[in-house]
Design a binder for these strands. Structure first.
Lengths: 132, 132
DNA sequence: AACAAATGATACTATTATGGTATCATTAAC
DNA sequence: GTTAATGATACCATAATAGTATCATTTGTT
């Protein structure tokens, strides 16, 4: 029922803080202060964002994370995919076994429609749009 | 990320089967056959639906469950509330502690909007509409 | 009256996902 | 070379989920 997990939420918060400091490199320590997210956990999140290309990391003294080029346009949808995997509101609970309603299931279509709308809206929420 | 849990899904399936047999009382055993949902688990679900007033149970030999009067108009939204509790896509992860972005959080509004739409659509999905 | 067939209520268990910590390796600045 | 940072991973605790088991109660049948 949660659209967004804690990971995603914290990631979003951190990225916003980073984005506000145009180009400046912020360390985990600084970001912990700004976001109140527990250090080691935040660090893991930032590492994932680095791997995903949203942030760029700098090692060594004075190191930290900054926003990668053009990534103010990262969408909430992208973050959800990074932290929560492929977006699907609608997955039949009869996975391997065959669902007794295969073919006739009227629910799928209805939820697909909802899903489509939600995805559209999640793609409209960009970092840039949140900073304004 | 799941809009619907297994409980809710199974409940919906069972109710649909029951609704198709207008007024007839169906036992857990019969419903297990129809839905392929494990017996004891299904039973627990049906009991909750009875408590919630969606179904009416009959004890003793030949007993089982039937749909309560007017409850073909039960909405998927209602079932979600019964099995998953109060519907909220958007809950700040800083619950007791104060969120560092209180007041300025721009995300809340955006997700509230999504939530509103989703709720509207979930309220349009009724048992009756799924039977057609 | 006895028995069987059903649900009511509840306690228990196993598995998985989530949230978070800890540690050692690596890199870079001074 | 030392220190301050991230990279990579392994680990752990808690909670939620999915499901089982059991005993009590009710009701129909003989």
């Amino acid at each position: 029922m949660k659209l967004i997990t804690r990971d995603t939420d914290y990631a979003l918060r951190a990225i916003c803080k980073i984005a506000k400091e145009k180009g400046k490199v912020l360390s985990v320590k600084e970001l912990t202060g700004l976001t109140k997210v527990p250090g080691p956990y935040l660090r893991k999140i930032l590492q994932r964002l680095n791997k995903a290309g949203v942030l760029i990391s700098h090692k060594g003294t004075g190191g930290g994370f900054k926003l990668a080029r053009g990534k103010v346009n990262t969408r909430l949808f992208d973050l959800i995919v990074i932290f929560q995997g492929h977006f699907k509101l609608n997955e039949c609970f009869f996975k391997k076994e065959k669902c007794p309603d295969t073919g006739t299931c009227p629910l799928k279509k209805r939820i697909d429609k909802i899903e489509k709308n939600v995805i559209k809206e999640l793609k409209e929420i960009t970092i840039a749009s949140l900073l304004r």
